[in-house]
């Protein structure tokens, strides 16, 4: 009897996952459709499947611009959400997110040093030379250094709350350094830095995708194989240890995955806020489970969907203008987070 009901609940999980799996390609198609230049759906499909009679210009727009942007949206949404899920579970805090360990401030320091530092020293002309690859490399280096620091701290320090506080302090300290760099930089370099901090899905090229895709897949793969660890973390570290988990190893796996996911997305797209905090809660709610074997795929799909929706909204369908995607995700995510806080007031703790 009980087993039947348990199966029913698991059945609900799979049903939700199936619906999400169908929604993602649908919104992917809508995202390809939305843009300043009108292209009909059949033409888009023709361009995607390289049908012989596809219009050359349409193929160019789809393949070089809209397709990489939509793929980036899926990658960024999935990556940030899974990173957020892992942080919420490990820190047992519903407001933890992918950037809580300071990954994004590390990336912004790298970019600030490159854009503002070199721009300030050698004049504005160098900024254009700091190609998009340069920015990516700088951001990656910055978040990589923070990752290294966090992993070192997590191996040495036992108490998870201490790690959380250190993460917050480190990212505040780095932000101040970035502020100082901003203060001493000139207008044009400052503007290009500020634009980076607004986040963008559109600047990722096909060749950059060949780096972003495997990075995100590796990070997600680690999250998948960590789902048993994550389940144990739900009860706190003492219980996890009493059930035979190697805390330090498990923590390192989770931090590694989070840093790879959040670090590479931030490197290519700039910091994108609130998706990583809000999506895991939506996934928990629609799946009605706390088991990570379901939550990890659910969060990946919900995150991809949320990011596609944000990208569609940021195009302001019917207009020529584009909003910074970071503002859209914040405006979508913050009400969700507020709702979660109010709803969970009595049964808090993730």
């Amino acid at each position: 009897m009980a087993e039947v009901i348990t199966d029913k609940i698991a059945g609900r999980g799979f049903k939700v996952l199936l619906i999400l799996t169908l929604l993602v390609p649908l919104f992917f198609l809508i995202d390809l459709f939305v843009g300043s230049y009108y292209i009909s759906i059949p033409e888009i499909l023709k361009a995607i499947f390289r049908s012989g009679n596809a219009d050359h210009q349409v193929v160019l727009i789809i393949n070089q611009f809209r397709m990489p942007k939509a793929v980036t949206a899926i990658l960024a949404g999935a990556a940030l959400s899974v990173a957020g899920l892992q942080m919420q579970t490990v820190f047992r805090n519903p407001l933890a997110g992918p950037y809580i360990l300071g990954v994004s401030s590390g990336a912004s320091l790298g970019v600030a040093l490159l854009v503002l530092g070199t721009g300030g020293l050698l004049g504005g002309s160098i900024v254009s030379a700091a190609s998009s690859w340069g920015i990516v490399a700088a951001a990656w280096l910055g978040s990589g250094l923070i990752l290294l620091l966090i992993v070192l701290i997590s191996v040495r320090i036992k108490d998870i709350m201490t790690i959380l506080i250190l993460g917050i302090l480190i990212s505040s300290a780095i932000s101040s350094v970035v502020n100082i760099l901003q203060y001493f930089s000139n207008e044009s370099t400052l503007k290009s830095f500020v634009i980076w901090t607004m986040g963008s899905l559109g600047s990722v090229t096909n060749s950059q995708l060949s780096v972003l895709i495997p990075s995100v897949l590796i990070g997600i793969g680690i999250a998948f194989v960590s789902s048993k660890f994550l389940d144990a973390f739900l009860l706190g570290e003492n219980y996890a240890r009493s059930m035979g988990m190697n805390i330090r190893f498990a923590r390192m796996m989770v931090f590694l995955s989070t840093a790879i996911l959040a670090g590479s997305v931030t490197a290519f797209c700039g910091p994108i806020g609130f998706i990583g905090i809000a999506v895991p809660h939506i996934a928990r709610m629609v799946l009605q489970t706390a088991k990570h074997s379901l939550l990890v795929p659910g969060t990946i799909l919900t995150g991809a969907l949320m990011m596609l929706v944000s990208d569609i909204i940021s195009q302001l369908p019917g207009s020529e203008r584009i909003l910074p995607v970071n503002s859209v995700t914040a405006l979508l995510g913050i009400p969700i987070v507020i709702w979660i806080i109010i709803r969970n007031k009595n049964s808090s703790r993730i």
């Binding site: 009860l235 035979g244 706390a290």
Partner: peptide, 18 residues
């Protein structure tokens, strides 16, 4: 322990961890 959306069965099943 107050974990939202964690069923009694799933919590007890964590005991099978090792």
């Amino acid at each position: 322990i107050r974990v939202p959306n964690l069923s009694v069965f799933d919590l007890v099943s964590l005991g099978r961890y090792p």
